[in-house]
């Protein structure tokens, strides 16, 4: 994954960037299976490698497939990134060890879900039970966000008739001037 990300940073052909993004998503899905998150891996493979690749390709078709070379040396962003990275690595020293069941984040509500989800909802897949039942508000909010994003895309892209007329008017007035 690290190699693929370096490739994405260096590639100037946006088509290559999109394809590398697809590969990256599949690798990420594999890592998620290793981390026991099968539901998430399934979603990532379908969404990351499927949907977003298709969308990016459609946009590439609408725009340009080459990136302009950088105009100035990326010294300041690089410096900021390195500083942030250093701070984050320093932060990992205090994180609890990987994979222990008695870590604090595994002690809060998760044991309750694991013990009671099947008895209370008849659903062996705890992820689904928590998603739809225990954390129904969260999921409702997420669905609302998706709804809003969809409406936003529709508003931005589907009002073509009126906008084309406006563009024609502007073009005419510019010629007059």
């Amino acid at each position: 994954m690290v190699v693929v990300v370096i490739g994405i940073i260096r590639a100037h052909n946006l088509f290559a960037v999109v394809m590398l993004g697809g590969i990256y998503s599949f690798l990420l899905a594999t890592v998620m299976v290793i981390l026991d998150a099968v539901d998430v891996a399934m979603t990532e493979a379908a969404v990351g490698a499927g949907m977003s690749t298709v969308l990016l390709l459609a946009v590439l078709h609408l725009t340009r497939a080459r990136e302009a070379p950088l105009r100035h040396a990326p010294a300041i962003p690089l410096l900021v990134c390195l500083l942030t990275g250093g701070a984050l690595v320093y932060g990992t020293l205090d994180l609890p060890p990987f994979g222990k069941a008695d870590n604090p984040q595994n002690q809060h509500v998760a044991p309750y879900y694991l013990e009671n989800a099947e008895a209370e909802t008849k659903s062996p897949n705890v992820v689904t039970a928590v998603l739809a039942s225990y954390r129904g508000y969260d999921t409702l909010g997420e669905v609302a966000v998706i709804f809003t994003a969809g409406i936003g895309v529709l508003i931005l892209l589907s009002r073509r008739r009126r906008r084309e007329m406006i563009v024609e008017d502007e073009g005419g007035s510019k010629h007059d001037a």
Binding site: S123, V143, L157
Partner: peptide, 28 residues
């Protein structure tokens, strides 16, 4: 709870599928 989860998942399914399709339609 079982019925509720099924209904809610159906709602999620409808929204997600149709949003993705709508996005694809406008881009395409």
């Amino acid at each position: 709870q079982h019925v509720g989860i099924l209904v809610v998942e159906a709602g999620v399914f409808i929204t997600v599928a149709s949003t993705m399709l709508a996005i694809f339609y406008v881009f395409g």
